[in-house]
């Protein structure tokens, strides 16, 4: 089954978990997600000097909200959008699976779920709410 954004994530190899595709600066350890041809903004390192790495997809939920109106073409609502801190330290935004709003501090995992004909990345609550 195709991925909707294969440049951003890949199957983790167990269940429907996903890894996120990032760049790492070997000198400083600085990370960039997503991978870009422009390098790592946190350290100014060009992409050629960075190494591709996979992030675990494990995250802690910082905050989330439900979007009630379709604010862009094709947006299906309700939709829960979250800010998450990845296990590796980066803070990113993601869409949650389902329509529940877990509390801050909840453990989340990136997973691949069917969206139309393709699999997209969503974040799923793991082990119950915080």
């Amino acid at each position: 089954m195709d991925l909707r954004d294969p440049a951003l994530y890949a199957p983790a190899g167990h269940g429907d978990a996903a890894v996120l595709l990032a760049l790492r600066d070997p000198a400083t350890g600085a990370l960039a997600f997503p991978r870009t041809p422009y390098g790592i903004g946190a350290s100014g390192t060009p992409a050629e000097a960075a190494e591709p790495v996979e992030l675990s997809g494990r995250a802690t939920l910082l905050v989330c909200v439900t979007v009630h109106q379709p604010l862009s073409p094709g947006m299906q609502v309700p939709l829960v959008v979250a800010r998450l801190r990845l296990e590796e330290g980066l803070v990113i935004d993601g869409v949650l699976e389902g329509t529940e709003e877990p509390p801050p501090g909840s453990a989340m995992q990136a997973v691949l779920v069917m969206q139309g004909e393709r699999r997209a990345c969503r974040f799923r609550l793991v082990g119950g709410a915080a």
Binding site: D5, A7, T36, V65, V67, L71, S72, V81
Partner: peptide, 19 residues
Amino acid sequence: DGVPRLTPEAEIPAVKFAM
């Protein structure tokens, strides 16, 4: 900018400020 985005929804100002 040629950069793929995991969550373009979060860049919509109403969503960003709701968070």
